[in-house]
Design a binder for these strands. Structure first.
Length: 379
DNA sequence: AAGTGCGACAACCGCAACAAA
DNA sequence: CTTTGTTGCGGTTGTCGCACT
């Protein structure tokens, strides 16, 4: 049995508010307040509106000191930072921006800010990809001229044009329902800087010191990591991650930490919710626009192959897979090369795919060529 | 000038949390 | 403790106006 409706749907007006309705509602609330009961309010003042609708109209439009439109660069930064830190918790974000409503911010994010951010990311990665291609061509020429198939990509390859998820330690990979583990390929001492850099790349602002310069100081704790407690949580996350060394994204990194040491890092979990959301959003955007992405020629495929060759030559056991599932790469269209910069290096494993390594590696696996596998994580 | 597509914004809907009875 | 009502929140939809063809 469903809940009884809060008002008589047949007798309430819907749609845009008229100036008369606005005036009625505004003058009543200014004189009497809401009376603590929105549901009863419309009847009291003779409005054929649902109480919820009255509340929304007041909060989002009629109440004093509401600002509409004209978001400043500063406000953009705050919204981006908080979104990355805490996700789509618009009411909390709105609380940091006096005069802004959650609805306003939500609309602003969905219609403009997200695209703005995506545009930035696309530009950066397009540039990076161009640089990468140039370097790669040079390497291929060297390879051919030396006729030496053991010629490795240089250790620093991709270092200046690393896609954001490649800033992070590489995840354990599941192939054919088996969990494989391989050691991190990014020096762990750089993890903190990498993650921070990653977040900043996505538009976030992480402050090591107490230098958050916003209209008001952030009230939500994980908006920066300036406090000792926050630094501790962050540090715990990173330390534990070096023990497990098994994450694709910062969020997963912490998620596994959470399982690993049993400590309550709720705050830090929160810290990366938005991150995951944003990544998911980006991927959704990418995969919902699969035009002109040819897996056979794509950087992702080529990179994956290079990565496998490189790893195997380095003596580490690795596998490579993608999590694209049934996504189609067919067709061509207008998204084009810019979006390919996102496609360049997809995450190795999805959150849902991750399970702690528990078994042994089958030696005859087509994906595993090394026999010197030594698990180093504590699971 | 009419039709179409798209962006921006307002408003609605459903759910969860909380409070009161 | 359970039920019922209210509030708050976030996702989604509807509408309007502008730009483009």
């Amino acid at each position: 049995m469903g809940r009884a409706p809060c008002c008589d749907k047949a007798n309430v007006k819907k749609g845009p508010w008229s100036p008369e309705e606005d005036a009625t509602l505004k003058s009543y609330i200014e004189q009497h307040g809401t009376g603590g009961n929105w549901i009863a309010l419309p009847q009291k003042i003779g409005l054929k509106r649902c109480g919820k609708s009255c509340r929304l109209r007041w909060l989002n439009y009629l109440r004093p000191n509401i600002k509409h439109g004209g978001f400043s660069e500063e406000e953009d930064n705050i919204i981006c930072s908080l979104y990355i830190s805490i996700g789509s918790r618009w009411s909390i974000i709105a609380a940091q921006l006096p005069g802004r409503t959650d609805n306003d911010i939500k609309n602003y994010w969905n219609t403009r800010l997200k695209k703005k951010l995506l545009g930035k990311q696309r530009k950066e990665h397009a540039q990076a990809r161009r640089a990468n291609n140039t370097l790669k061509q040079e390497i291929m020429i060297k390879r051919e001229s030396h006729d030496d198939q053991s010629f490795n990509l240089p250790a620093g390859f991709l270092i200046n044009q690393t896609p954001y998820w490649q800033d992070l330690p590489v995840a354990p990979v599941m192939v054919n329902n088996q969990n494989y583990y391989h050691p991190p390929q990014v020096p762990l001492k750089d993890d903190q800087a990498s993650i921070k850099n990653f977040l900043i790349k996505l538009g976030g602002r992480f402050s090591d010191q107490t230098t958050t310069t916003t209209a008001r100081e952030f009230q939500y704790p994980m908006a920066d990591i300036s406090s000792a407690g926050q630094q501790q949580a962050y540090s715990n996350m990173l330390n534990a991650s070096s023990a497990t060394a098994s994450c694709t994204t910062a969020y997963e990194q912490f998620q596994s930490t959470h399982e690993y040491d049993g400590d309550d890092h709720g705050a830090a979990t929160t810290m990366f919710q938005g991150l995951e959301n944003l990544q998911a959003e980006l991927w959704q955007l990418i995969y919902s626009n699969p035009q002109e992405i040819d897996i056979g020629n794509s950087e992702s495929f080529n990179y994956g192959m290079d990565q496998m060759v490189n790893n195997n030559n380095n003596g580490s056991t690795t596998t490579a897979t993608t999590t694209t599932g049934n996504n189609s790469y067919a067709d061509s269209g207008s998204w084009g090369s810019e979006m390919n910069s996102f496609m360049a290096y997809p995450p190795v494993v999805a959150v849902s795919d991750y399970k702690p390594y528990q078994g042994t590696i089958p030696q005859d696996s087509a994906f595993v060529e090394e026999s010197s596998y030594v698990p180093t994580c504590g699971v």
